[in-house]
Computed example of a mutant assay.
Amino acid sequence: MTILTVNGETDIRRLAKNILIPIVGGSLVGMLATRKAKEKYRKLDKPSFAPPSWVFPVAWTGLYTAMGLARYRVSLKEEQEFLPESAPLYNVQLGLNFLWSFLFFRWGLRGTAFIEMAIMLSLITITSYEYYQRDKTAGALMIPYIGWVTYALGLNYSIWQKN
């Protein structure tokens, strides 16, 4: 069994769609919401655990790929096993993920971004649990996302308090 095969089936088009949606969406959000983000980030008073700005696009590309792969695996399981659709949870948390960049960078609403991220983290956790119930590999693929967003929540809070 490979990570791309679910119950003996591989659907390359579905795989590409599920991976490209978060990557392309995140890239577009990055272009629209975070113009001059490196400059803004550099000027912020940050905690000692804040990474350099180049870490974010690298981390998010990997996380979006893992999320898309998890979504792909679950979508195949749902179709093959006639399970209820889990896409709404995934779509809402992904939408909140994209919104956060606007709140934090574009509009400078650091406190609102913190609250929004806390809600997002809750939805990511629920989504991950639901994925794990359907496909253990898909659930495991979401764990780095939970870890990163937990870290980012602490970073967001600290930056909000310092600025």
Rank of each mutant, 00 (worst) to 15 (best):
A33D: 02
L32P: 00
R35S: 10
S48E: 06
T65G: 04
E39T: 14
L69K: 11
V29A: 14
W60Y: 14
A59L: 12
K77P: 01
L32D: 01
A66E: 00
T61L: 12
E78V: 11
W60I: 03
Y64S: 03
V58M: 12
A59K: 04
Y41P: 08
A33E: 04
A59C: 11
K46R: 15
L28H: 04
R42M: 02
P51K: 12
V58G: 00
A59W: 03
M67F: 05
A37F: 13
R35C: 00
K40C: 00
W60F: 14
S48Y: 10
A37Y: 06
S27F: 15
S48L: 11
A70H: 07
S53F: 15
P52Q: 11
W54G: 00
V74H: 02
R42I: 03
Y41Q: 03
G62S: 06
P57M: 12
K36F: 12
E79C: 03
P51L: 11
S53W: 15
K38W: 08
V74D: 05
M67Q: 10
A50G: 03
F49P: 02
K36S: 12
E78Y: 09
F49Q: 04
T65I: 10
S48K: 12
W54E: 12
F56Q: 02
M67H: 08
W60S: 04
S53K: 01
R71Q: 13
K38Y: 04
A59H: 02
A66V: 11
K46V: 04
E39I: 07
E79K: 15
P57C: 08
L28Q: 02
R35G: 15
L63H: 05
L76K: 06
P51H: 11
T34N: 09
L32H: 01
G30Y: 06
V74C: 05
K77E: 14
E79G: 08
L32F: 14
K46Q: 10
F56L: 04
E79N: 13
E79P: 01
L76Y: 05
G30T: 08
